[in-house]
């Protein structure tokens, strides 16, 4: 049965798009049929992060308005056969997104995909509320930093009140994904640690993505981090998180970069 997942955070720049691409690719790498949808109308970026920016012809708004068929707007990933992208419109106004239109798109995608991952824009406006509206589960991306934690709390409140599931009296599955985590700084008391964040937000943990240069490298190259370098620390953390999403029990490790002997002997200056 298809599962609709929203990747949300409230705050911008915490890693929603990176996480959508990485989780989408990780699920597709495991053989699942995945559609990732960009809900950031006017500021689309999922196409760029996934390296499909030059292949966009039709977009979500075109489908919502009946100007294009869903099959015309979906872009198949060049590396993974089971990964598809539905881009947002870069030129249209975000008000062109309607609830009925989005409901129709999600309903149709449910017929053929295992996972529909909605990449939410930052904020709590129309794009963000529609991205979460029809979700069965939510991944709340949070940095261990005060403003991000506060915004996540607000988003959790909205997930529990404004989604279709919540309004029906059902339970929306919520998962915390902590990104840009630096275990050394947390250990020194310079950064909120995992327990602090979980305690404050009282939401179960999906994964811990360590701060890493690999994330920027992957976006430079237009490749989800799990595909770009599957052995890197963030890739392994995303692959673990994807396994947990599928119900697997995976120990919660904070992955570190595997340093070569040379690197261990001479620590590179930052």
């Amino acid at each position: 049965m298809a599962k609709v997942l929203v990747v949300t955070s409230g705050k911008g720049g915490v890693g929603k798009t990176t996480s959508t691409a990485a989780l989408g690719a990780a699920l597709a790498q495991a053989g699942q049929k995945v559609a990732v949808i960009d809900f950031d109308v006017g500021l689309r970026n999922l196409d760029l992060v996934m390296g499909a920016e030059r292949r966009v012809v039709f977009d979500l708004i075109n489908v919502v308005q009946g100007m294009a068929k869903l099959s015309q707007a979906l872009i198949r990933d060049k590396r993974l056969e089971t990964l598809w992208l539905l881009p947002a419109s870069q030129t249209r106004d975000k008000d062109a997104l309607t609830e009925i239109g989005v409901a129709g798109v999600i309903k149709e995608l449910r017929k053929t995909f295992d996972w529909i991952i909605c990449d939410s824009p930052a904020g709590i406006e129309r794009g963000a509320t529609l991205a979460m509206r029809f979700a069965d589960a939510a991944v709340i991306v949070t940095n261990p930093e005060v403003s991000s934690v506060r915004d996540s709390d607000r988003i959790i409140g909205l997930l529990d009140s404004k989604t279709e599931k919540a309004e029906k009296g059902e339970q929306i599955e919520k998962h915390m994904l902590i990104t840009r985590y630096d275990p050394q700084r947390a250990k020194r008391g310079e950064m909120l640690n995992i327990e602090d964040v979980l305690d404050i937000l009282s939401t179960p943990l999906l994964g811990i993505i360590p701060e890493s240069q690999e994330v920027l490298r992957a976006s430079n190259l237009g490749s989800p981090v799990t595909l770009c370098n599957a052995a890197s620390a963030p890739a392994r953390a995303y692959l673990d998180a994807a396994r947990r999403l599928r119900g697997g029990v995976v120990p919660m490790n904070i992955h570190g970069e595997r340093k070569r002997l040379f690197g261990k002997l001479f620590r590179r200056a930052a």
Binding site: E145, V146, I200
Partner: peptide, 14 residues
């Protein structure tokens, strides 16, 4: 470390 202060401020605010 400044993290305990961050935690305390967040708990009160939230």
């Amino acid at each position: 470390g400044s993290a305990p202060r961050a935690r305390e401020r967040l708990q009160i605010l939230l």
